[in-house]
Design a protein around this nucleic acid. Structure first.
Lengths: 163, 163
DNA sequence: GCTTTTGTTTATAATCATTACAGATATGTG
DNA sequence: CACATATCTGTAATGATTATAAACAAAAGC
């Protein structure tokens, strides 16, 4: 399902309604490769539809996840990130700054999920590589000579600054 | 790192201290294949060390994750689950009841993470298959003839009951 | 062994993402 | 056009996780 028409068809088939909100959210998401959080999307969508409530956004995101149309994943930053790309690629997640990047083609094994595994009906699958991005490696190395306490404090304030 | 001695050595090497709490939490985790949440662990450990605080548990879990000694992952139930098994196997997660099972050997491709991908220093990796477990498939099928509203309500109360 | 240093723990308060709720609204249908 | 009902909105509630500051305990030095 990549077009709005298919979304509408699916909703209707289940006895649901093709609302402005569903269509808006789907359109915002379908081409978004930035791994946005719910908050990211809310800020963006609010300008297009000022009446939009967070509850609706969460509801629609959850149903899209349940249908396997988008994926949700955790990067360790305390929010859920969403991704419309269900093609089977992996993400690279920095455990220090929580940046997310798609693993470059061919860098790691890729594969589609089977429809069924051990009796489970599979609708999506998700793979993440956790580690430290080049920038954070550099910063960690610079601090490695310092006493442990200062190191910890520096790390904390780096987090506070904005991840 | 699979023994307490190695844990202690690692902590010391970083200028840290081998505390009762770190050792206790590591021991509780190292053989636990149940994909526990922080709350699960807290309840269990509290009986062994009544003074243990949640903050400490979270601190230690976070450091173990940062070291790549355990993995954290999201099942969609609103809490983080932890797993000491870093061997590269995948999890099966039910999107309705949020049960977690290890994918059986050979059911899906398995592989170790490389140490480096696209400049990221990788310390762990995590793969989940999301879908519906046999039990939930059965329940969803039973309800599929009913009007949409009743279906939604039934699902909600199933969630409320206890996932 | 005893003291000092400093990393860690504890208890509690605060945060903040997400969900629940109840009334208002909009969609699809006849 | 009117009806039935799925969905939306705004707000309150929830609950997992994190921040904070004082108390504690491990390691190092003497």
């Amino acid at each position: 399902m990549r077009s709005v028409d298919e979304l509408i068809e699916r909703v209707r088939r289940q006895g649901g309604k093709a609302t402005t909100q569903r269509i808006l959210i789907w359109n915002a998401l379908v081409d978004d490769m930035s791994h946005p959080t719910a908050e990211d999307l809310y800020v963006r969508l609010k300008s297009q539809l000022p009446s939009l409530s967070q509850a609706t956004l969460y509801n629609v995101l959850n149903e899209l996840v349940e249908w396997g149309e988008i994926r949700r994943f955790d990067t360790g930053d305390g929010r859920i990130h969403f991704d419309p790309d269900t093609s089977g690629h992996a993400e690279l997640v920095c455990m220090r700054c929580h940046k997310v990047a798609d693993a470059p083609e061919g860098a790691v094994p890729e594969h589609r999920a089977p429809d069924e595994v051990a009796g489970y009906r599979i609708v999506s699958h998700s793979e993440q590589y956790f580690g430290y991005c080049p920038d954070c490696q550099r910063e960690l190395d610079e601090r490695s000579g310092q006493p442990a306490e200062r190191r910890a404090r520096a790390l904390e304030s780096a987090r506070a600054r904005g991840d």
